[in-house]
């Protein structure tokens, strides 16, 4: 009995960690944009929905999968630069709160447009990854979650390589480090912001496909943004490592709480548990685990 309980605990823990990776996937999109432009992009969830919905609708209209991915990416590039031009540039130098509220408006536009164009019905999405759990030493692990974790790891590795070994990646880091200095050495801020939003669009596509395969491609997909926010709070808004660790903590905490704490309070606590966890944590460390501490000047 004792062994079984321990096995069960490990199984829940692993399941939680793996679903946490899915949260991290969404959170990374936020971090990219926050780091370089200081905007907390609430529209990341809407972008995720938009990307997944566009991809699925293109495939359903008979496009080959690689072609559909290419076309969706092109659309995300266009979207990224359009947002830079029409929302970010006019709001340059305005307070972070104003920018946040603007992305709230943006999320309404993207959600509305995505569903106006592609319809509101639920689309199934099959990525060809089976969701049959397999067993290791008596512990069942979902193949799909494992594959998702693999894809996430590959994406993070790819992003890091991009940041460290390409010119545009260097420019990203320069802007994240000091906007004015970057401008002074002649970096084109508008092009960099456009690219960053494109990169976030790419992350949104990957996350959207994985989440879409899990939940079906539908409106509620844009609500995963609400799962990503506590992850960001835990990890700090400007750290990719933080997004990953935060995602793992939230995923594991949520699953463990649901299994071991849920029965005592009537269940359904996964809707807010992550927030309370993040809130409690914030009181101890206001800048998150890996966030930059703010130095205030008058």
């Amino acid at each position: 009995m004792e062994v079984y309980d321990l096995l069960f605990f490990v199984e829940v823990l692993i399941g939680g960690l793996l679903s946490g990776v899915m949260y991290s996937l969404v959170a990374i999109g936020f971090v990219l944009i926050y780091k370089t432009s200081g905007v907390l992009n609430f529209a990341q969830g809407a972008m995720l929905l938009f990307a997944a919905l566009t991809f699925v609708s293109l495939v359903e209209r008979g496009l080959a999968v690689p072609l559909a991915i290419g076309l969706t990416l092109l659309i995300m590039v266009a979207l990224g630069f359009a947002i830079e031009r029409s929302v970010l540039r006019p709001l340059v130098n305005r307070s972070p709160m104003t920018l946040f509220m603007a992305t709230l408006g943006l999320s309404y536009i993207i959600e509305g447009a995505a569903q106006l164009v592609w319809g509101t019905q639920v689309h199934g999405l099959d990525l060809g990854i089976s969701d049959v759990p397999f067993e290791i030493a008596g512990i069942f692990i979902s193949t799909f979650d494992l594959a998702a974790a693999g894809i996430a790891a590959a994406m993070v590795a790819g992003l890091s390589a991009f940041f460290y070994w390409t010119r545009i990646g260097l420019a990203f880091r320069a802007v994240a480090d000091d906007q004015f200095a970057a401008l002074a050495v002649g970096l084109r801020l508008s092009r960099i912001w456009g690219s960053v939003w494109t990169a976030a669009g790419f992350v949104a596509l990957v996350a959207g496909l994985l989440w879409g395969a899990r939940l079906g491609v539908q409106f509620s997909l844009s609500l995963v943004v609400l799962k990503a926010l506590p992850v960001l709070v835990l990890g700090g808004f400007d750290s990719i490592l933080g997004a990953i660790v935060g995602g793992l903590i939230v995923g594991a905490g949520e699953k463990l709480a649901e299994v071991y704490l849920g029965p005592f309070v009537g269940g359904g606590i996964e809707g807010w548990f992550a927030y309370v966890l993040a809130l409690g944590f914030l009181l101890l460390r206001p800048a998150g685990l890996f966030g930059t501490k703010l130095v205030e000047r008058v």
């Binding site: 907390l40 972070p96 709160m97 926010l229 709070v233 009537g266 807010w272 927030y275 914030l282 703010l294």
Partner: peptide, 29 residues
Amino acid sequence: LPSLRLRGFYLAVSTLAAQFFVQWVLTKF
């Protein structure tokens, strides 16, 4: 209360906690 230590986005996120927690309490109990 968190607003005494938190600023900006961190606070906005913490008010979301109220949003989900209250709705859950009212439905569950």
